[in-house]
Design a protein around this nucleic acid. Structure first.
Lengths: 254, 254
DNA sequence: TAAATTCTTGCAAAATCTTCCAAAACCTTC
DNA sequence: GAAGGTTTTGGAAGATTTTGCAAGAATTTA
């Protein structure tokens, strides 16, 4: 096969998948990995795609969603269910803070209909609403934290310190009776500002996060009003949390 | 078989397949590879196809190219060329402000290699870099202006007022000897802040914008250091701009 | 920090291109 | 219809490009 044809096929393949690994492409066009590498170089020069470690991704993705969520298939169904259940807690017209994090992303997907005012530091969430003009979306400033597409840093913290909201929908790395914790230290400051800015705090956690502890402590249990999780949640912890006056909602996984 | 008949059959074959190898064609028209080579030379001269290593490719496949970037096909090639040319003006490691706007978006596509520090209020641009961790991307805060994915409002203006950058890469609705103008009033304030924050201002405009005036005046010509445009630029205006000590770069559109 | 994956670079083999040449086909003219 | 000239064809030698691989560098991930 000729170089140009191969390159076109790579383009077409990427058009379907948005992202592809070298092996994948090598197989698709029936050429060695080296050759594909070179082709990707040409195509990147041309501006149609961007090389990444291990593959390439389309530069003008039709669904911006893909940029981030490709890797996240963990507990997908549970997160879907949590997203739906959590969205139902929101009243129309409320001002909502949306945290970054895949679980919260799924909440956002179900939130559009309510047309609330949304404040977020998550690029995936922002993308979700960027086309629809039903909701007013405020994006905090900040530096992009690569893989997750979260905005972090002083600009982000400042943005959340200056506002007030009805609800903050957040996620975390883990929760136990000692409190809530998260893995990325960079996020902690921002999340604290979010908690401070909101009258009500809803925490969305799939069951794997319950009873776990992450690196950095975020806040005590008293800062949390509601937890939305899925059916896999350990009953004893749920019971204990409820005893602490926290509303715990188990999302039905249809 | 006569040369002309052979060439016609080659055309027809390519019309079906878009790509073809020498051997393939040689078999198809029942002539030696050398002869086919010569035929391809003639046909390329005629403009119906382009030779490639190992074969030939149809020159104007109706299906191609347009499927790729669905949204903004206005002056696409010109914008591509401008994007590339403009990106070459940036030194590695510089701090760059990127405006929202399709032309600037094309600049962004070629910018990652320079691993600059980028500040932008454009969600599409932010997405472009979100997976890449070579460059540091700062996103200004703001409210999403729906269709364009631009962040506007006080948060955005404030973000740009507080920073300093080496270069601002911007676009506009039109430029004439009276100055630069843009259509969206919301953007004017932000763009002024960008200009103020940058030591050097580069304006990227395809030729249709030259000599045109848009609704709201943005700034005078003295605020602009460099203009990157394409081959269609009217010579007299280019001359006049250069007389004003503005560097005008005409991007070569291969 | 260390292991593992992926990238870059240089190189030799393979494929393809160009250029040239002689044979074949074709045309013109007688 | 034949002789002489022109064009086209197929092939071969050498130059060029492309390809696949391997070693060392760089990046990612845990």
């Amino acid at each position: 096969m000729q170089p140009e044809e191969r390159q076109k096929r790579i383009e077409e393949y990427l058009l379907k998948t948005e992202f592809a690994s070298l092996d994948e492409l090598s197989e698709e066009v029936d050429a060695s990995v080296s050759t594909v590498r070179r082709d990707l170089g040409v195509l990147e020069e041309k501006g149609t795609l961007r090389r990444t470690h291990g593959g390439a991704r389309l530069l003008n993705p039709k669904s911006d969603e893909f940029t981030f969520t490709t890797r996240d298939t963990h507990q997908l169904e549970e997160k879907e269910a949590i997203g739906k259940a959590c969205a139902e807690l929101i009243q129309p017209g409320q001002t909502v803070i949306l945290d970054a994090g895949t679980t919260v992303y799924h909440v956002a997907k179900h939130l559009e209909i309510k047309s609330p005012q949304i404040i977020t530091n998550s690029l995936p969430v922002a993308n979700l609403f960027s086309a629809a003009n039903k909701a007013e979306i405020v994006v905090s400033g900040g530096v992009i934290y690569p893989r997750l597409g979260v905005l972090v840093g002083p600009l982000a913290v400042e943005a959340f310190s200056k506002i007030r909201a009805d609800v903050a929908i957040m996620s975390a790395g883990g929760i136990s009776l000692d409190g809530v914790s998260n893995s990325h230290g960079l996020l902690i400051d921002i999340q604290r500002a979010m908690i401070h800015a909101a009258r009500k705090v809803i925490l969305c956690l799939d069951h794997t996060k319950l009873g776990r502890q992450s690196i950095s402590p975020l806040c005590g249990l008293d800062a949390i009003d509601t937890i939305v999780t899925d059916k896999g949640a350990p009953a004893d912890l749920v019971k204990a949390l409820r005893k602490q006056k926290i509303e715990v909602i188990i999302a039905a996984g249809n």
